[in-house]
Computed example of a mutant assay.
Amino acid sequence: MSSCDLPKSLLRYADWPALLFIAANYFIQYNRNYSINSSENMINLNLRRIQTFLALAEHGSFRRVAERLNRSQSVVSSHIKQLEEEVGVPLVNRTTRQVSLTPEGLRLAARCKIALVELDTAIKELQDEVQLSKGIVSISCSPSVSTHFMPPIISEFQNNYPGISFYLNEDFPDIMYGRLRRMEADFAIGPKPEHQGDMVFEEILSDPIVAIVPKNLPIGDQTEVTLKELASYPYLAMPSGTIIRKMIEVAFYSQGLQMVPRLEVIHQQTIFSMVEAGLGVTIMPQLSVPKTRGDYRVLRLIEPTITRQVGLIFLRGRNMSPAAQCCIDLVQARLKSHLNS
Rank of each mutant, 00 (worst) to 15 (best):
Thr95Asn: 14
Thr95Ala: 11
Arg97Gly: 05
Gln98Arg: 03
Val99Pro: 02
Leu101Asn: 11
Thr102Lys: 02
Thr102Gly: 11
Pro103Leu: 09
Glu104Pro: 09
Gly105Trp: 05
Leu106Met: 10
Ala109Gln: 11
Ala110Lys: 11
Arg111Val: 11
Cys112His: 03
Lys113Trp: 01
Ile114Gln: 03
Ile114Trp: 00
Glu118Ala: 11
Glu118Pro: 00
Glu118His: 06
Leu119Arg: 03
Leu119Gly: 11
Asp120Gln: 07
Asp120Gly: 09
Asp120Glu: 06
Thr121Ile: 14
Thr121Gly: 07
Ala122Lys: 07
Glu125Trp: 02
Glu125Leu: 12
Glu125Arg: 14
Leu126Cys: 10
Gln127Ile: 12
Asp128His: 00
Asp128Pro: 00
Glu129Arg: 10
Glu129Tyr: 04
Gln131Cys: 05
Gln131Thr: 04
Lys134Trp: 00
Ile136Trp: 05
Ser138Glu: 06
Ser138Trp: 04
Ser140Asp: 01
Cys141Trp: 07
Pro143Lys: 08
Pro143Ser: 11
Pro143Val: 13
Val145Thr: 08
Val145Gln: 01
Ser146Asn: 03
Phe149Tyr: 14
Phe149Val: 01
Pro151Leu: 12
Pro152Met: 03
Pro152Cys: 07
Pro152His: 13
Ile153Ala: 01
Ile154Cys: 07
Glu156Arg: 10
Glu156Ala: 06
Glu156Pro: 00
Gln158Lys: 08
Asn159Met: 12
Asn159Tyr: 06
Asn160Trp: 01
Asn160Gly: 06
Tyr161Gln: 05
Tyr161Gly: 04
Pro162Asp: 08
Pro162Thr: 06
Pro162His: 08
Ile164Lys: 05
Ile164Gln: 06
Ile164Trp: 02
Ile164Asp: 03
Ser165Pro: 00
Ser165Gly: 00
Phe166Met: 06
Tyr167Glu: 01
Tyr167Val: 06
Asn169Thr: 10
Asn169Ala: 15
Asn169Ile: 05
Glu170Lys: 09
Glu170Asn: 15
Pro173Ile: 04
Met176Arg: 09
Met176Ser: 10
Met176Thr: 04
Tyr177Ile: 01
Tyr177Phe: 13
